[in-house]
């Protein structure tokens, strides 16, 4: 064992220098020169000021803007605390108290107005109210669920379309104009087949403001 200690320490130090100092410095150097904007966080500027990163979602609550998905990162869209909710698919906190066994107990013990509703049902109701969605229209799942990072910059196209009327009315604009803008900010799947069709909320909202 003792004969192995010296090479162990030397290799540990050698690889700390090669893989831990030289390698990241080389990558940083080349990245800063070749891809400076991306390497620094793809910041979005309005009037010369940074308003956020196009890759990182941010909170929007006012009616004149499109709203992002619910977020479990801190108080919502806090990049200091990226996180999902980690609520399980059967957790009554998320999906409401169903009919089975111990869940009924939880439902009746609750003191709130509607203790049986889970986060998803509550969000569905709020979303419907804010956007004045008629009762026959179902809300797309992404609008009532939190993402894994809590920083999801995107929403689904269906979600954006349901919000368009409210945004247009608040701004005194024509719905069709707003929908056209949504369409212009819809990203297709990468290369046509990778991933999902999606709308970047921050870019869309900044574009809305830019048209004034």
């Amino acid at each position: 064992m003792r004969r192995q200690i010296a090479p162990a320490i030397v290799t540990f130090l050698a690889f700390t220098v090669i893989c831990g100092i030289v390698y990241p410095l080389v990558v940083t150097g080349v990245a800063q020169v070749a891809f400076g904007r991306k390497a620094n966080g793809s910041f979005l500027h309005v009037d010369g000021e940074k308003v956020g990163s196009t890759l990182v979602g941010q909170a929007f609550t006012s009616n004149e803007y499109f709203h992002p998905r619910p977020s479990a990162a801190g108080e919502g869209y806090d990049p200091r605390a990226s996180s999902g909710s980690n609520l399980g698919p059967s957790n009554p906190v998320l999906v409401g108290a169903g009919r089975a066994g111990d869940q009924r107990e939880l439902c009746e013990d609750g003191s709130e107005a509607d203790p049986c509703a889970g986060l998803i049902q509550q969000r569905e109701r709020e979303y419907r109210e804010i956007n004045d969605v008629d009762p026959d229209t179902e809300i797309p799942i992404d609008a009532v669920t939190a993402s894994g990072s809590g920083l999801d910059p995107h929403i689904s196209v269906a979600n954006a379309e349901l919000q368009a009327a409210r945004v247009a009315a608040t701004r005194g604009e024509d719905v069709d104009d707003v929908l056209t803008l949504v369409d212009a900010h819809t990203e297709d799947p990468d290369l046509g087949f990778l991933g999902e069709r999606r709308v970047n909320v921050l870019e869309l909202n900044v574009a809305l403001d830019a048209r004034r």
């Binding site: 698919p89 799942i141 669920t145 993402s147 979600n159 379309e161 999902e196």
Partner: peptide, 15 residues
Amino acid sequence: DTATGGNMEGKESRF
């Protein structure tokens, strides 16, 4: 065509 569907709690829209 316009929504991912499925079990989206904890998932990103882009994936």
